[in-house]
């Protein structure tokens, strides 16, 4: 309960700050030196936040769709051949640092939102895929047997039984992906993507702690909100199937 109140307060604070950053200037003034501005105004914080979230949302949706599709394919009889390979690739792929993936996308995509989106998408595939695989392969054999025995077609089994049962685990994967993407997107501003990283980096370059703090604060609150939101969703989904 206190958790829910805290989340609501954080959300309201975030919205108020983004709606009118200037009115929070006194809060950040102690962190500035030599009369530097307390609030980042180069680009609107609201528009940076929106483009940051847009980037993350796009990447997460794309990775989720592709990763779940791939996980479904390698767990069907026709795709079983790829299963061992898929497991190895995911486990090795996740040791790749997200920043390195981002840096390596630049030569291919050039600067801007492109490489960030590609890096977020590629890196985001792995947690969703790994979880979807675990969710789809770790199901009770009795439930599968009963579904087959009652005459559900493979497609009906997938949509009516396997996917709903795998949902909580898949959601965990999406949450991991969303949180990682949110963080990695800040670094995207080093390759000229419009994200909240811009504020932090401007702060680092001009030694303006206020910028660093406000950039970090906005991303941090959003990350925590997304994390908590997903966790609620997962608990709800898990409770429905009696695992709560």
């Amino acid at each position: 309960m206190t958790g829910r109140v805290l989340m609501a307060v954080a959300l309201l604070f975030l919205l108020a700050f983004l709606a009118s950053p200037e009115s929070f200037a006194p809060l950040f003034e102690p962190f500035t030196r030599n009369n530097a501005p307390a609030i980042y105004t180069q680009t609107g914080l609201m528009s940076l936040t929106l483009s940051h979230l847009g980037l993350v949302l796009l990447a997460v949706i794309a990775s989720t769709l592709i990763a779940v599709t791939l996980a479904i394919l390698v767990t069907r009889p026709a795709g079983r051949e790829f299963l061992p390979l898929a497991r190895t690739v995911t486990s090795v792929g996740q040791t790749f640092p997200p920043v390195a993936v981002l840096a390596l996308a630049v030569p291919v995509m050039g600067f801007g939102a492109g490489p960030t989106l590609v890096a977020l998408f590629l890196y985001g595939l792995l947690p969703v895929f790994e979880n979807a695989l675990a969710g789809l392969t770790g199901q009770s054999p009795q439930v599968q047997e009963a579904a087959r025995g009652m005459g559900l077609t493979p497609r009906q089994r997938l949509w009516q039984v396997e996917l709903p049962l795998a949902l909580p685990v898949i959601l965990t994967g999406v949450r991991l992906t969303a949180v990682i993407s949110l963080g990695t997107a800040t670094i995207g501003s080093t390759v000229a993507a419009k994200t909240l990283g811009e504020v932090i980096i401007a702060g680092l370059l001009s030694s303006n702690t206020a910028f660093v703090l406000q950039g970090g604060m906005v991303v941090g609150i959003i990350a925590v909100l997304i994390y908590e939101g997903f966790q609620r969703l997962e608990q709800f989904a898990a409770a429905r199937i009696g695992q709560g």
């Binding site: 949180v179 949110l182 963080g183 990350a223």
Partner: peptide
Amino acid sequence: ILQTIPSLALFGIMIP
């Protein structure tokens, strides 16, 4: 929550 804070932000906050 610490884990959730994006790395660039956490690094940045450490400096001041």
